[in-house]
Amino acid sequence: MPIDAVKAVAAEPRTAGIRWDRKDVQLYHLGLGAGVPATDPGELRYTLESRLHVLPTFATVAGAGKAVAGVVSLTGIDIALASVLHGAQSVRVHRPIPVEGRAVQSGRVAAVYDKGSAAVIVLRTEAADDDGPLWTNESQIFVRGEGGFGGERGPSTGFALPAVAPDHTVERHVREDQALLYRLSGDWNPLHADPDFAAQAGFDRPILHGLCTYGMTVKAVADTVLDGDVSRIRACSTRFAGVAFPGETLRIDMWAADTRAVVTVSAVERGGAPVLDSTLVEYS
């Protein structure tokens, strides 16, 4: 059996030291489309070392994180990379991420769920430095064709939207080369660069990384709702409802309250096709 759920969950956590510096942070932000306009004071907080702050979603790539591609080599899991899709993601930061740092990161398979036509592998990663916990990531990885093994179905990550018009709507353009730039932060899955590999996975061209769309969305919330103060963000979660392609325009709808924003993302050129749903940004 390609996935041995019991063996995968029982495996010892994988622990490794990671490090990052301002260039890693700047590259990540640029991969999200930051820096447009280049001299805008708000954008300089993402691109200029003397003003730099760190978007919490950087936790998904710190130390060249590669949860989606790395899942194929975990204990108890023997699957093809082309069958893997990112289903959902959450990040909780325990304090602002420093511009430069070292940490110990520990990751494990927290659960394996049976969705019938697919299996869902839940990867949980925690990082801490000398001052204590930094962040906790949780990735839900869908593996097509590997369900039906009789396991628990698992909880739903979806929720209903407010029954009123959004408080804010912004649009963000995805550059043609954005996936090529974003992958330099550590996710080398050829699905995002190689047309032949994308065709094997059922797409007519390479798609944008789901985590790139996720980071773009959280940045949009920070810039629109929080006046760019990323230090206020405590947690952010999303469900990948569809795909985005380089060259498209993303419509980001936000319902903002005192301590959280509910968000959806859709592709304008494809008639509002869903890209992210059940997205929540929590802040102070």
Results as ranks from 00 to 15, higher is better:
Val265Glu: 08
Asp40Leu: 09
Ala5Glu: 13
Ser73Leu: 11
Val174Pro: 01
His94Arg: 13
Val225Gln: 06
Arg51Leu: 15
Gly132Asp: 11
Ala110Asp: 03
Tyr28Ala: 06
Arg124Gly: 01
Ala244Asn: 13
Lys66Arg: 15
Asp40Tyr: 02
Leu280Ala: 04
Thr224Gln: 13
Gln200Leu: 14
Leu30Pro: 02
Ala67Met: 12
Ala34Asp: 08
Gly87Asn: 09
Val9Trp: 03
Lys7Tyr: 10
Val265Phe: 03
Gly151Cys: 11
Arg260Ser: 15
Gly70Asn: 10
Ala59His: 05
Val36Asn: 08
Thr57Met: 01
Thr213Asn: 05
Ala127His: 03
Thr157Met: 08
Gly35Asn: 09
Val61Ile: 12
Glu171Leu: 01
His86Thr: 07
Phe240Gln: 01
Asp187Thr: 06
Thr75Gly: 08
Leu211Pro: 00
Val99His: 02
Trp188Gln: 14
Pro155Gly: 08
Val112Asp: 03
Gly271Glu: 05
Ala163Glu: 13
His209Asp: 05
Val91Asn: 07
Gln105Leu: 12
Ala62Tyr: 11
His209Tyr: 04
Leu52Lys: 07
Pro246Ala: 11
Val93Gly: 02
Phe159Ala: 07
Glu146Leu: 09
Gln140Phe: 03
Pro166Asp: 14
Pro2Phe: 12
Tyr182Arg: 07
Asp258Gly: 11
Ile207Thr: 04
Asp21Glu: 12
Ser83Met: 05
Arg251Ile: 15
Ala111Gly: 02
Pro98Ile: 13
Arg183Ser: 09
Val99Leu: 05
Ala38Met: 09
His168Thr: 03
Pro133Thr: 07
His53Lys: 15
Leu55Ala: 12
Ile207Tyr: 06
Ala198Ser: 07
Glu248Leu: 00
Gly17His: 15
Asp229Tyr: 04
Val230Ser: 04
Gly31Trp: 04
Asp227Leu: 07
Ala235Phe: 01
Gly33Ile: 09
Asp253Tyr: 10
Phe149Tyr: 12
Thr15Glu: 14
Thr224Arg: 14
Cys212Arg: 07
Ala163Met: 06
Phe203Cys: 04
Asp131Ala: 13
Phe203Met: 06
Ala88Trp: 07
Glu12Gly: 10
Gly132Pro: 01
Ala179Val: 04
Leu276Arg: 04
Gln200Pro: 00
Val170Arg: 01
Thr57Cys: 04
Val120Lys: 02
Leu48Glu: 04
Pro190His: 11
Gly76Cys: 11
Pro155Tyr: 10
Gly35Ala: 13
Gly17Ala: 14
Ala103Asn: 00
Pro206Val: 14
Trp255Arg: 08
Thr169Tyr: 05
Glu138Trp: 00
Arg251Gly: 08
Ala10Leu: 11
Ser156Met: 08
Val25Leu: 05
Trp255His: 09
Ile207Met: 02
Asp194His: 01
Gly210His: 06
Val112Leu: 05
Pro96Phe: 06
Arg45Asp: 14
